[in-house]
């Protein structure tokens, strides 16, 4: 299934027609390229999470339309179409371990595939494959998910989404609250998955390191709308603008900027490899002083 996504003038109001009506999104237009890794950044409350709910038809746009592959979602879209659409979309929410409920780990991971019509055997096969991917060993399959450690629960919950074999995988701050090693393991898992299956990945994150390292495309939200989108290099080029938006700059870029202040100019530094390469060249005297 083709999964290019397009937002066209999307607006969304919470609790419309009540005294509590609050605007969530307005004039949102952007694209998520198919088969790529897209990062969505922005302040807490900038509208990122509301946008994500549109991607899975959990809310419908109040105005405008969202095109996902050949499915168009508007305020009038029927529930049945949404259910069909959801079968192809995996959504990992913040603190996804809160969704675990079955008696055993294996059953919980099979829950998604079965809801979308997979047979018992197919669901089990998909679940076992997914659990293997997230490094949950088979001796835990029959355990209650509530007996596991926090990190294991997180991985089981993610397996529950991966087992649906989605064409679009949406990750809403999937590593929040984990220790550094746990964070690294998860990010590696997601990038491997994206490369192996050529799926579209949308990552919502506060960590600019991830954006610099993994993203092909970046979308910036502020006050309920998209204020910029482009490649990581374009986004991080205008530092003043980022500061204005209270967004961070990746550590490697910050470091390069500190060097620039001392008169050492480097080019297009986003991650640590680029930084180390250029510095090593300088230190070995391969490049003339600027």
């Amino acid at each position: 299934m083709v999964m290019a996504i397009n937002f066209d003038q999307v607006g969304f109001t919470y609790q419309p027609n009540t005294p509590f009506a609050t605007p969530g999104l307005h004039d949102v237009s952007f694209e998520i390229p198919e088969g790529k890794f897209t990062a969505v950044i922005g302040h807490t409350g900038s509208g990122k999470s509301t946008m994500v709910q549109h991607l899975d038809g959990l809310v419908l746009p109040t105005t405008g339309k969202v095109t996902m592959g050949d499915q168009v979602v508007t305020a009038e879209t029927k529930l049945k179409e949404l259910n069909e659409m959801r079968a192809h979309i995996g959504l990992v929410f913040q603190f996804p371990e809160a969704q675990l409920f079955e008696q055993t780990v294996l059953k919980d991971v099979m829950f998604g595939p079965k809801n979308f019509g997979a047979s018992e055997e197919d669901a089990q096969a998909a679940a076992e494959a997914a659990l293997k991917k997230v490094a949950i060993s088979p001796d835990l399959y029959e355990r209650s998910p509530f007996e596991l450690s926090g990190g294991q629960m997180r991985r089981v919950a993610i397996a529950g989404v991966i087992a649906m074999e989605p064409d679009l995988l949406i990750l809403d701050e999937p590593t929040a609250g984990l220790d550094p090693q746990g964070q690294r393991e998860l990010m590696t898992l997601f990038t491997d998955l994206q490369k192996e299956r050529h799926i579209t990945v949308v990552l919502i994150t506060h960590q600019m390191e991830y954006v610099a390292q993994y993203a092909d495309h970046v979308v910036v939200f502020e006050h309920g709308t998209v204020v910029k989108s482009g490649s990581p290099t374009t986004i991080f080029a205008d530092e003043e603008w980022l500061h204005e938006k209270q967004l961070d700059v990746p550590a490697a870029k910050q470091f390069a900027d500190a060097l620039a202040e001392k008169g050492i100019q480097l080019h297009n530094v986003l991650d640590i490899d680029q930084l180390a390469d250029q510095l090593a060249a300088r230190l070995n005297g391969e490049v003339d002083h600027v």
């Binding site: 090693q181 746990g182 470091f255 180390a276 510095l279 090593a280 230190l283 070995n284």
Partner: peptide, 19 residues
């Protein structure tokens, strides 16, 4: 299982490049 400060990561990378 802990994080390494950025400056130390960079030092490691430079060392790998023979610096």
């Amino acid at each position: 299982g802990l994080a390494v400060p950025f400056a130390e990561q960079l030092k490691e990378q430079l060392r790998l490049r023979g610096i």
